[in-house]
Design a protein around this nucleic acid. Structure first.
Lengths: 356, 356
DNA sequence: ATTGATTGCACCATCGATTGTGCAAAGGCG
DNA sequence: CGCCTTTGCACAATCGATGGTGCAATCAAT
């Protein structure tokens, strides 16, 4: 009905219009009016006016006053991977269902960027922070601690805040074992035919490498050091590692344990440069699930980390009064080749289907 | 040096510590102190204190006062697709380089969710809003307009704000033509052997369908209506469409134009249920690029929408004083099968490589 | 009619930063 | 020394919402 040319309506505008005081208007509009013994008819009047004038609260003002903002943050290393983007998707839905506002930001696996980003979030008085895959969880902990902000680590653990991570050791064992079986078992396979590529100096990589090596040692009695090729989390570095191996050996290892889908993209880049023979008989295990990756023309075993359960657990811990500083391991799932799993997008209902 | 137990330092704390007034402290810390003729030595003193006490400005207070927050929003339909997650990735980098704080949120292609999400963002006084793939861009425009917030549409155009979208018509023509060529051309192919799946009642789908039909009509002289199967943007609905077709025809169409990578996931689900013969000879064109999708065991032609250029153009328009309400078309790129393109992740430098 | 309880709401300080305005002290000039 | 300019900073209002406190009006009971 009434249009506001430019300015948004405030409780003061509604105060004048309704003849009530700003505090009454405030109480009515934030739901505390019964506690303040405001007459029902007064409340109705103000609510009607608020609707007419399209009042919405200024959340910065509210946040300033309350020193809480209603924002819940998720800090990611990167957006552009199905693992993290599905985490963002699930996170948003969960936060929304709690009536809060999700804020997803990424910090490029750069400890400095992580800190400044978190400082910014803190300056906006976010209520809670979910820290996923941070390179320096304990540094972030210090910032949150000083600001009194509840936080939790996901995917990569810290030592000073509760952490929820996938069971990388067990997952790596499952994956390595599955690769070996797929290649025919230890009878016809030698330990130096299976390599691990990707990952860096973080907890997840260490655990995965440990699982990889343990299985190989158990099954083969040996695991040559050269089979571990940590290249960081970059497609480019991974590609270079494959190229180097190929230049030397004129082929790829028969079994490849790839640390993440991001490293897997490095393999794609390699594949694009080489004839089909170069990878006719390989078996790939990737520690991440990507639906398209599962259908490549060679067997791809994947580990799907259970993002839903990890986040559910994390939210559960967030609600605890005094959560213990411990690491919660969520078992991941081995996904066999050519498998299309459902994901968070399936929870979205399709509205307004096609009609012309 | 000094630890704050719980509370963050404010300009008032520093005011007491320095013996200066809060306004002086404020001026020093926000950089306007020269304009206010503050002595250099005073400024240095205050800056030193600020550092010691780890002062960071309360951005909600600043935002309240300035009615601007330093936040720049990106509204996405969903996170969990490489198209939108790469958009988020690129967006963040760009916003950061402008010294602002990126906020990425998704609204599930639900017009109501879109509106409430935008209202929330407005309530936080975001400075600018990039609206990507919104179902109701003009509704969002109305909200932004009323709040005086600069905004721009990306991916799906509106009629009331400037828009930057990919040239869906041309892209669809390129893709359709490439599919037909790949299948041997019009000589040995019939028009009802090429189907379009996916998409819904939005501008992008309409344009892509138009491009698809125009090319088919030009090349075959005909395009049966049945070849258009808009299933919405849901893997599940897409899968059902493939199943239905397969149940009837005992095979898939030889050429499939798939409206987005999300619909493509529906095809994966179908593939997982059926023997290899069901799709031995198909050629798929997907209007989206996904690196893993490009390497599937059948030829996959993909359209890579130029997210970088779209965003660059959008930021450029945002800086214009009085941008024209027009639609800017950014040409997309046809990606041949087995192609691994670089993406925004390649811009991230790897810090702290592996070391044990 | 007086007392006491209840109802219904207004007043005002507060959150932290910003900024227009004012004013004392210092310096320059004749 | 008197007057004017410049320097350097303090004061106080403001942004919008919140919530503790206080007070007048109404009502019930004696």
């Amino acid at each position: 009905m009434d249009y506001q040319g430019k300015k948004k309506a405030t409780i003061y505008d509604l105060s004048v219009l309704s003849g009530c005081s700003p505090s009454t208007v405030s109480a009515v509009l934030n739901g505390t009016w019964r506690k303040r013994r405001i007459k029902e008819s007064t409340a109705e009047l103000i609510q009607k006016l608020a609707e007419q004038h399209r009042y919405t609260a200024n959340l910065q003002a509210r946040g300033l006053r309350n020193s809480r903002s209603g924002l819940v943050g998720l800090l990611l290393p990167v957006h552009d991977s199905r693992y993290f983007s599905s985490m963002a998707q699930t996170f948003e839905a969960e936060v929304r269902s709690h009536g809060k506002c999700p804020v997803v930001v990424s910090a490029c696996r750069d400890p400095r960027e992580e800190r400044t980003t978190v400082e910014t979030l803190i300056s906006y008085s976010i209520d809670e922070l979910f820290v996923a895959g941070a390179t320096d969880p304990d540094g972030i902990h210090a910032l949150c601690e000083a600001a009194g902000i509840r936080h939790i680590n996901i995917d990569l653990p810290g030592t000073k805040a509760p952490s929820v991570i996938s069971d990388n050791y067990k997952g790596a064992r499952m994956l390595t074992e599955a690769i070996i079986h797929r290649l025919g078992g230890t009878g016809i396979l030698k330990p130096d035919e299976i390599y691990l590529f990707g990952g860096r100096n973080d907890h997840a990589s260490h655990e995965r490498i440990r699982g990889f090596r343990d299985i190989k040692t158990e099954m083969f009695g040996a695991d040559p050091d050269k089979c571990i090729q940590p290249t960081g989390y970059s497609p480019d570095m991974s590609q270079k590692a494959f190229e180097t191996f190929y230049a030397r050996e004129k082929r790829l290892p028969r079994g490849l344990f790839i640390n993440s889908s991001i490293n897997f993209e490095g393999l794609l880049r390699f594949l694009a440069q080489h004839p089909h023979e170069a990878f006719a008989d390989i078996v790939v295990g990737c520690y991440d699930y990507d639906p398209f990756g599962s259908f490549l023309p060679f067997p791809v075993l994947m580990i799907r980390q259970d993002v839903e359960r990890m986040l559910a657990k994390a939210f559960e811990i967030m609600e605890e009064a005094r959560p213990a500083i411990e690491i919660h391991l969520i078992p991941p799932e081995l996904v066999h080749p050519r498998t299309a799993l459902t994901g968070p997008l399936d929870l979205i209902k399709e509205i307004d289907a096609f009609s012309r």
